[in-house]
Design a protein around this nucleic acid. Structure first.
Lengths: 110, 110
DNA sequence: TTCTTCTATCGGTATCTGGCGATGAACCCT
DNA sequence: AGGGTTCATCGCCAGATACCGATAGAAGAA
């Protein structure tokens, strides 16, 4: 995952309401979960929730499944895995460079 | 880590330039790395880089160590660990709820 | 067809963000 | 004291974001 794309996903995760929406979708993964359902769990207007969902959709974290008159939303497991991989990659890349600096200089791997 | 704080950190990671700055600091972890050093690696004005660093400072991802006339920056390993833990917590919380829904309903753990 | 429900989108407003140049404070070295 | 370097901060501007209410379109129900 490129930096631009990764940054977009990070920004999508960068709002407490959107974290809540992800958890709500995870909790209700067994049932169908439409925009109205999510709105009922939050102290926000439907239009606002719809916009937050759109951000998550654009980031690929959530999938839309139209079911008759409503839109059913669910998390995208594949995207979550990719995100997890990208995050682990960033993290290990950072600490890999940190760690040797915090030990003795000669302990760096060959 | 609370959602608000976690979201702040995610937002701090939500810009390609700031990802670059983190990598630059990791690479140069052995040496001292001041704002000017970082600026030389990026096609941006010093004031812009300083503001990005401030975002990372506010998120706790980076520490400042004044050294004479310059400010030396380095990653905060403790904060990175906390971030990694929080991210893993979010991720596993999400997939823990997804996974049973994607298998059979009766396979849910006791 | 007509009614209801659901939801994406539009318009409006307030706030935040990202970029720059300029500036002043702090710290070194003569 | 005087000169040079570093860097945080300010002012400015353009564009993005967050929130709302209102609305229109699509789909099912009557």
């Amino acid at each position: 995952m490129q930096d631009d794309e990764f940054a977009d996903v990070m920004r999508a995760l960068g709002h407490p309401v959107r974290l809540s929406i992800l958890r709500i979708l995870a909790e209700k993964a067994q049932h169908e979960c439409c925009c109205t359902d999510v709105t009922e769990c939050l102290p926000l207007a439907q239009s606002t929730v719809s916009q937050h969902i759109k951000v998550l959709l654009d980031a690929g974290l959530v999938e839309r499944h139209p079911q008759g008159t409503r839109n059913c939303y669910k998390l995208s497991p594949g995207r979550l895995d990719a995100l997890n991989a990208a995050f682990s990659g960033l993290f290990s890349g950072l600490v890999a460079d940190i760690a040797p600096a915090q030990r003795r200089p000669e302990t760096e791997p060959a």
